[in-house]
């Protein structure tokens, strides 16, 4: 995934810095890098957000569509994730190069959002048993600088916060029910994202673990666990990634760190989003 090829000496340097809880960019092991979040950038979407986490740049657009309900779950709406790993980010994504990574991220998001408390899926149903909203959550990776899973999930949550679903009025006539979509751009409803998870990746480096690993640090890790953490600290999905194995005690420690960091991250994100909302849409500039 990365171009960064590290020598043994560089790897040892990173390993030692993690050991001392003082990473190469001066952070502690449980610190995130500087992050920028903007919402409502793309006018053709119903909700959009961009997150820049150090060098990782992610753009998310959510489009809503009316569709027939899933016969297995006739009274709820659906979410559909798609991650486009653009070759702009790294030449390795050219052609079908980014497909595996994209499907891995979308699988993780699908699982993290699959529990009923993540968003109010019932409110996404327009006509139970017939029509519901299908939210296409499309993620575009513009730049990779490590920790993609977390950045993508933050951007997705921000875009869902920004989402404006047009109101639908139903009129009953003899032929059945007729759906009318409101023309008024200010006639919409919002989605409650308080229960939505963010993904936290915890990387094992040496005997310690770090969150929000940079590209170089990712190169030094053999195993990481990826968790969806909600604001309440519950874990909505988890998986281990990488070719290494882990001790069960260290997994517990890593989970504890992820929970702590994830709860904090959720709180700060929601606060920042609400603040942006209050200030009104003033885009600080899209790509700088």
């Amino acid at each position: 995934m990365t171009d960064a090829e590290l020598s043994e000496a560089e790897k040892t340097f990173i390993l030692h810095s993690v050991q001392d809880n003082f990473r190469e960019d001066g952070r502690g092991n449980e610190d995130f890098r500087h992050m920028e979040v903007e919402t409502g950038l793309i006018s053709n979407t119903n909700g959009s957000a961009r997150v820049r986490l150090a060098n990782t740049d992610v753009l998310v657009g959510v489009k809503v569509q009316l569709t027939a309900v899933d016969p297995e779950k006739p009274e709820v709406g659906r979410l559909d994730f798609f991650i486009d790993c653009s070759a702009n980010a790294t030449p390795a994504f050219e052609g079908r190069g980014g497909e595996d990574l994209g499907s891995e991220i979308s699988a993780m998001l699908t699982r993290a959002y699959s529990c009923p408390s993540a968003v109010d899926f019932h409110s996404l149903c327009v006509l139970p048993g017939q029509q519901c909203w299908l939210l296409y959550v499309d993620v575009l990776l513009l730049e990779c600088g490590g920790n993609l899973f977390d950045a993508v999930s933050i951007a997705v949550k921000a875009a869902l916060f920004n989402l404006k679903i047009p109101n639908v009025t139903m009129t009953k006539d003899e032929g059945g029910v007729e759906l009318d979509l409101s023309d008024d751009p200010f006639d919409f409803k919002r989605l409650n994202v308080a229960g939505a998870p963010v993904v936290v990746t915890v990387n094992k480096i040496g005997h310690k673990h770090v969150v929000d690993a940079s590209e170089k640090e990712e190169e030094c890790t053999l195993a990481r666990i990826i968790l969806g953490v909600t604001e309440k600290g519950t874990i909505t999905s988890m998986r281990k990634e990488g070719s290494g194995s882990l001790d069960s005690d260290s997994i517990s420690e890593m989970m504890e760190s992820a929970r702590k960091v994830g709860m904090e991250l959720n709180k700060i994100l929601l606060k920042a989003l609400e603040e942006e909302e209050k200030q009104g849409a003033k885009t600080v500039g899209f790509l700088r």
């Binding site: 519950t234 874990i235 999905s237 988890m238 194995s245 989970m255």
Partner: peptide, 23 residues
């Protein structure tokens, strides 16, 4: 080797419950 090589969870679980069921 008493090592965990894969770990996967779905649904919503609290940290304590997840830890216990993992054990």
């Amino acid at each position: 080797m008493s090592q965990v090589s894969a770990l996967s969870s779905d649904g919503e679980l609290s940290f304590e419950v997840l830890n216990k069921s993992m054990q």
